[in-house]
Design a protein around this nucleic acid. Structure first.
Length: 293
DNA sequence: CACTTGACCTGTCCGC
DNA sequence: TGCGGACAGGTCAAGT
C-alpha cells in the first residue's frame, strides 16, 4: 500500500482540494468493509456536512467534517482516494491522469459527490481497504489508533525512544520490527528496504544484534527516505495515485527496492532479492552483511 | 507476551 | 493461448 509518504501525499492533495466542500451524495458500489455504516448514518452525518480539515495518522487518512464526524480511511495495498472536478469528469484529461473521466470504474467502492458537482472516488482493486464514518472524538479509540506507534517525522520522536521501543522485539528480525506499526508508524515494505540499505543493516539481522549506534543511523535513514519520497510524490509501482490521480516518482530514486540484478549505487555490487519477514526484500549483499556468530 | 504464518482479494506475470 | 502457481505496497486472527 501506500506507506506514510504516499498517504501524506494524498492528504496534502485533499487538503488543497476538498476543504470547505459540502457532501451532497454518496454511492456505495461494493463491499461492506468499504463503508460499513448504515445509509441512515450517512444521511445524518455526511450529507450536508462540510470538510473541515484532512489529517493523517500513520497510514490512516482522517477527513474531519463539521458534523463532528470523521471519514476514516485505510488504503491498505491498492486503495486510492481520487478527486475529480466537473471539467475533468467531462474529459479534460492530462496525460498523467487521463483516466479520471472514466470513473467510477470496476475498482470503485465508494463515490462521494460535493455540492459543486466535483466527486471523490474511493477505489480499491484488492478490497483490503476500508472507509468508516465515526464521531471525531471516537477516532482515537479505534483499535488501530490506540496501538499504533509514534510518527517518525515528528521531532518529538527521538532515537532514544526508537531504540527503547525496538528493544521490546529482541528476537525478531530488524525488518519485521520496523514494519510493526506498534513500534513506529508508517514504515512499509519499500521504505523498510530503502532505510536498511541506507543504514547498512541486513534486514534479517536479529534486533538484539543491532547496536544502538546502528539503530540511531536507521532512524535517520527512515526519516530522510520518507522526506525524499514525500518530495517526489511517493512511490508508484502500479496502483498508487495521489489525490489528483497522478503517479509518484520515488521509485526512480530508489537504491534497492525492485532493483534486483542492478548495481548498488554505493559499491556497484549486484542487488539481490530475498524473503524476510514474509515479504520480498532487496539488499546489497556487500553493504548489508549478516553478523557472524 | 513475543513471534510466525496464513487469510483477506484481484490482477499480472512467468514457466510449462 | 491456456493454465497453475507465485507474487504484489498492509494488517489481523490464529497458531506455536
Amino acid at each position: 500500500m501506500p506507506e506514510l509518504p504516499e498517504v501524506e501525499t494524498v492528504r496534502r492533495g485533499l487538503q488543497e482540494l476538498i476543504v470547505g466542500k459540502k457532501f451532497v451524495g454518496v454511492q456505495v458500489y461494493e463491499s461492506p468493509k468499504s463503508f460499513p455504516n448504515t445509509m441512515s448514518d450517512a444521511r445524518k452525518f455526511l450529507i450536508n456536512a462540510q470538510v473541515v480539515t484532512v489529517r493523517r495518522r500513520a497510514k490512516v487518512l482522517l477527513i474531519d467534517l463539521n458534523s463532528d464526524y470523521t471519514l476514516v480511511t485505510h488504503l491498505k495495498m491498492t486503495g486510492q482516494l481520487i478527486y475529480v472536478s466537473p471539467q475533468q469528469r467531462w474529459g479534460a484529461g492530462h496525460p498523467n491522469n487521463s483516466f479520471l473521466h472514466e470513473l467510477p470504474d470496476k475498482s470503485t467502492r465508494v463515490e462521494f459527490v460535493f455540492s459543486d458537482d466535483s466527486h471523490l472516488y474511493f477505489n480499491d482493486q484488492r478490497k483490503f481497504g476500508w472507509v468508516k464514518l465515526v464521531p471525531t472524538v471516537e477516532v482515537e479509540n479505534i483499535d488501530f489508533m490506540r496501538r499504533v506507534g509514534p510518527e517518525p517525522l515528528e521531532d518529538a520522536f527521538t532515537a532514544q525512544q526508537f531504540i527503547l521501543r525496538l528493544r521490546r522485539r529482541r528476537n525478531t528480525t530488524i525488518k519485521a520490527a520496523i514494519l510493526d506499526q506498534t513500534v513506529l508508524a508508517g514504515v512499509g515494505n519499500i521504505y523498510a528496504d530503502e532505510s536498511l540499505w541506507g543504514a547498512k543493516i541486513h534486514p534479517a539481522t536479529r534486533v538484539r544484534d543491532v547496536s544502538d549506534t546502528q539503530l540511531t543511523k536507521l532512524l535517520t535513514e527512515i526519516k530522510s527516505v520518507m522526506i525524499l519520497s514525500i518530495e517526489k510524490g511517493g512511490s508508484t509501482d502500479k496502483n498508487y495515485r495521489d489525490a489528483e490521480g497522478r503517479k509518484g516518482s520515488y521509485l526512480s530514486f530508489a537504491r534497492v527496492f525492485r532493483r534486483e540484478g542492478k548495481a548498488c549505487p554505493r559499491c556497484g555490487s549486484v542487488i539481490e532479492k530475498l524473503r524476510v519477514a514474509g515479504r520480498g526484500t532487496h539488499i546489497c549483499p556487500v553493504c548489508q552483511k549478516l553478523p557472524v556468530h
